[in-house]
Design a protein around this nucleic acid. Structure first.
Lengths: 124, 124
DNA sequence: GTAATCCTTGACGCGCGCGTCAAGGCAAGA
DNA sequence: TCTTGCCTTGACGCGCGCGTCAAGGATTAC
C-alpha cells in the first residue's frame, strides 16, 4: 500500500509517516516511480509507535520496540531493550510524579497563606 | 542599580531580565545614557517571578502576581486574580497528576505482560 | 486531453524561555 | 590614550513532532 493508505489505516498523516522515516523508525520499499510502498508489518510498526506515544514515550523511546518488531519478534516488547525502556520510563514517570506532587503542595500552601491573609484583612 | 547588578542579586542573567521586559513583566527606568535603572521593588518583582516559576508557573502565569505587586500590594498574591491563578494552576496540576498516574499504570501493565510472556518462553 | 488526486523533496513555522553570538556605544582605571 | 568591562539592540538556535505551504511529477477518472 502507499503512504496515503497507510496513513489512513493507521489514523495518522503522511507527514508523520515521512517524519518517522526521517528519524529512522520506518523504512519503506520504493516503487519504480519513486512512491513509497508499505506492507502489513509496517502498519503494525506504526501502531506500536502510536501506542507507545500514547503512554508518554518520545519517538526515540519507541526505537527499541520498533527494532524488536523488525527483528522478527511477535510483539515489540519481547526484547530486553524494550523491557529496559519500560523500566526507565517508569522511573522517569515516578520522578515527574514526585515533582508534580511537591509542586502541588507548594501551590496549595501558597493558596492557603494568601487566603488566611485575606481573612485577616477582612477582620480589620 | 543597573541590569548586571540586578541579575547578580536575583541570581539570574541579564538576558532573562531583558526577556521579562520584552514580555511586559518588568519595566525599567532609563538613565540618560540609555542604561536600564532598577530599584528594590524590581528586585522583589523578579524574585516573585522566580518563585512562581519554581512551582511550575509559566511566565504568563506570573503576570497577575507582578501586576498585584506593582499596584502597591505588599505581596504578589494579595489580589483576586492571583488567587484565581493559584486555583487554576492547582486544577491544571491535578490534571497532569491524573494523566501521569494513568500513564504509569499503563506502562506498568505493559511491563508485567511482557515479563509474563518472557517467563512463558523460559518454561517452554 | 485535462482535471483531480495522488505522490515526491525541501523548507519554514510553532511554543517557551531564554543562551549565545554579533556589532557597536559608554564609562572608568592605568 | 588605550584597555577593560559594562551596557545597547537585533537576530539566530534549541528541543520535539509534526503542520503547512511550495513546486513539481505520476496516476487515475472522465
Amino acid at each position: 500500500m502507499r503512504i496515503g493508505d497507510l496513513a489512513q489505516r493507521a489514523g495518522t498523516t503522511t507527514r508523520a509517516l515521512r517524519f518517522y522515516e526521517s528519524q529512522g523508525l520506518l523504512m519503506a520499499q520504493r516503487a519504480p516511480n519513486g512512491y513509497r510502498e508499505y506492507d502489513e508489518d509496517d502498519l503494525r510498526l506504526v501502531t506500536e509507535v502510536q501506542t507507545l506515544q500514547g503512554i508518554g514515550f518520545s519517538l526515540d523511546d519507541t526505537r527499541p520496540f520498533v527494532d524488536c518488531l523488525r527483528s522478527g519478534h511477535e510483539s515489540g516488547d519481547s526484547c530486553a531493550d524494550s523491557i529496559e525502556t519500560y523500566r526507565r520510563k517508569l522511573a522517569e514517570v515516578d520522578g515527574y510524579l514526585d515533582r508534580l506532587t511537591a509542586i502541588r503542595a507548594g501551590i496549595q500552601a501558597k493558596l492557603h497563606d494568601a487566603q488566611a491573609r485575606q481573612r485577616q484583612e477582612e477582620r480589620r
